[in-house]
Amino acid sequence: MPASKPRSENAMLAEELGDALRLGGQIALKYFRGTIKSWTKGHDSPVSEADIAVDDFLRERLSRAGYGWLSEETKDDRARLSSERLFIVDPIDGTRSYLAGRPDWSIVAAVVEKGRPVAAAIYVPVDDDLYLAASGEGAARNGVPIEVSSGTALAGARIAGPKNMLERLTAIDPATIHEPKIHSLALRMTRVAEGRIDAALAAVNASDWDLAAADLLVHEAGGAITNFAGEALVYNLHDPVHGAILAAGRDRHAAMLDLMRKRRKEFA
């Protein structure tokens, strides 16, 4: 957040999230590239003792009266549905990458109010990069404001996402540039927010904890992130799972969404 602005409640919440994620990152790095216990859960999704350790720490650090809690590694307490505000957390987003010793994993947290994120933090421990956003106050990386890239063209656009989706775009315009896979979905969307890539796609079944923080970062950086119907994402529903997602600068997002509607069969 710009230092000259008075600190709002949401900006202070974002900073609090960031402080907690930095400490959580220290926990994760203690296990990283070492001997670590891991196992699989539903849908063959990996989880490790580091995920649990970071989750336990963040819940202890962040929990407060009146706030609900939703985390990938905590049993879902449906009492969250009646909470006006709640924390949405992914202790390690990109666990497969983490376990493989790759750098593209992150620690993610957002505060959601009435279905939309109002404060967000994403921390990339390997790079020591901290991204913060607060509703109406912009987004920043390590204290420096960030913004999405401009333009509408598909040709030459740097796009990250699932291979099959990228192949469909290439069939439409071979001049698209496929970025290497970014295993943390939150980080993939955040790369759009900082203009490092021009657009990002996500397949169906991404969850609240993958998207809520990045959603706010993208919007506060001047972009848009929606489902393929162009609808804003709503969080803290009974089933915290979403359809296919598109993130980009607002003009490019509108152009790509229009293209996807015209070529609906290819993107169904």
Score class of each variant (00 low, 15 high):
168 R>M: 08
194 E>N: 14
178 H>T: 06
78 R>S: 06
206 A>C: 12
129 D>T: 00
146 I>E: 00
170 T>M: 04
82 S>A: 11
23 L>Q: 14
75 K>A: 14
145 P>I: 07
154 L>V: 09
164 N>M: 11
11 A>E: 13
21 L>K: 07
62 L>K: 11
157 A>L: 13
152 T>A: 14
130 L>F: 05
11 A>W: 10
130 L>K: 02
4 S>D: 14
225 I>P: 01
8 S>L: 08
5 K>A: 13
245 I>E: 04
105 W>C: 02
173 D>R: 06
109 A>N: 09
72 E>V: 10
68 G>M: 10
252 R>I: 05
48 S>F: 12
158 R>A: 14
50 A>C: 10
99 L>Y: 06
196 R>V: 10
200 A>I: 04
215 D>K: 06
134 A>V: 06
156 G>Q: 12
8 S>N: 06
168 R>F: 04
237 L>V: 14
204 V>H: 10
28 A>M: 02
248 A>T: 04
14 A>I: 05
189 M>Q: 11
198 D>W: 05
127 D>M: 07
36 I>C: 03
108 V>R: 07
78 R>I: 10
32 F>K: 04
97 S>V: 03
99 L>E: 02
257 L>G: 08
103 P>F: 01
201 L>C: 10
175 A>M: 03
120 A>S: 15
26 Q>I: 03
16 E>F: 00
69 W>F: 13
12 M>I: 07
84 E>F: 01
171 A>F: 05
177 I>F: 03
178 H>G: 01
258 D>T: 10
88 I>P: 06
26 Q>H: 09
118 V>N: 08
83 S>V: 00
